[in-house]
Amino acid sequence: MNEMARLQKRKLALYGWMLAAPALALMSLFAFYPAIATFWHSLFTRGTSRRPSVFAGFENYGDLFADPTFWTVATNNLIYAGVTIPVSIIFALIMALWANAHIPARSFVRSAYFTPTILPMIAAANLWLFFYTPDLGVIDQITGFFGASPTNWLGQPETALASVIIVTIWKEAGFFMIFYLAALQTIPPDLREAARIEGAGRWTYTRRVLLPLLMPTTIFVFVNAMINSVKLIDHLFILTKGGPNNASKLILYWIWEMAFAYFDSPHAAAMTILVLLVLGLVAVAQFRLVEKRTHYR
C-alpha cells in the first residue's frame, strides 16, 4: 500500500477522534460516569456514623417494591404520562394545522401558541397557582359565576393530579406544535391538490396523507413527551409539593424527596436506575417498532 495513502487514512481517523473527544469527555464526566456511580451506590445500604454503609446487593430495589408509596407514585406517573402525552400531541397537531393554514394574523397565532413554552416553569406554575386559588382564582370565579361552589383544585386528592396534568398540557402543546409546524411546511402543497383532484376530502387527506407523513415528527415528539413526563419536578414544587397524601407525587419529585429531604440516597439511587432502565427500554422499543411503519424522507 502506498505509504502516503496509509498516512492519510491514519490522519483521518485521528481527526475523527479529536473531533469526538470533547463531547466524549464531557459525556463521560457528566453522564456515563454518574450513571454507573449511581448504579454502584444503589447496591449499598445507607451509611450513618454508627453503621457504615455495606454492600447489600439488590436489597434497596426490593425495599422500593415493598413500599406502597412506590406504587402510588408509579401509578400517578402512569396516569400523568397516559393523559399528558396523547392530549398534548393532539393539541399540538391541531394547533399546527391551524397555524399552518392561510389565516389572518398567522404569525400572531403562532407566537401566541408558543408563549407558554417561553415562560420559565416556575413563573408559569405561579401563574396557575393563582388560577387554581379557591374562590379567588380565575377558574373559581368562572365556575362561581355559573353557581358552582368554590373548589380547592390543588388541595384535594381527587383534583390535584388532574390540575397538574392540565398545566403540563398547556405548557407542552405549544412546544410540540413548533415541530409539527416545521414538518408541515416540508410537505409540498401539490400533494394536497393531487388528493383533492382524486376526490379526497379534508379528513381523508389528513388521515391518509398528512398523518403518515408526520409520523417521524410524532415519534420524536412522543419520545420527548415521554422523557418529560418523568422529568417533571418544578411545577410540583410550586403547585402541590406532591400532596395531598401523595395524590400528585411523581417519580422525580419522590426521588428528590428521598435523596434530599430524607437523605436516603441509596434508595433514591435505586429508583433513579429503575427510571433510566424503563426509559431506555421504552425509547428503544418505540424507535424499533414505529420505525418499521414510518416513512422517512
Binding site: 409540498p188 401539490d190 400533494l191 391538490e193 393531487a194 388528493a195 383533492r196 383532484i197 382524486e198 376526490g199 379526497a200 391518509r208 396523507v209 403518515p212 407523513l213 409520523m215 416513512h295 424522507r297
Partner: peptide, 20 residues
Amino acid sequence: TPPSKRGLSMVFQSYALFPH
C-alpha cells in the same frame, strides 16, 4: 364545482406522488 366532481385527472410537474 370542486375538482373531484369534474371528472378529470391531473399530472403535476412534481408528479405529487404520495411518498409514503
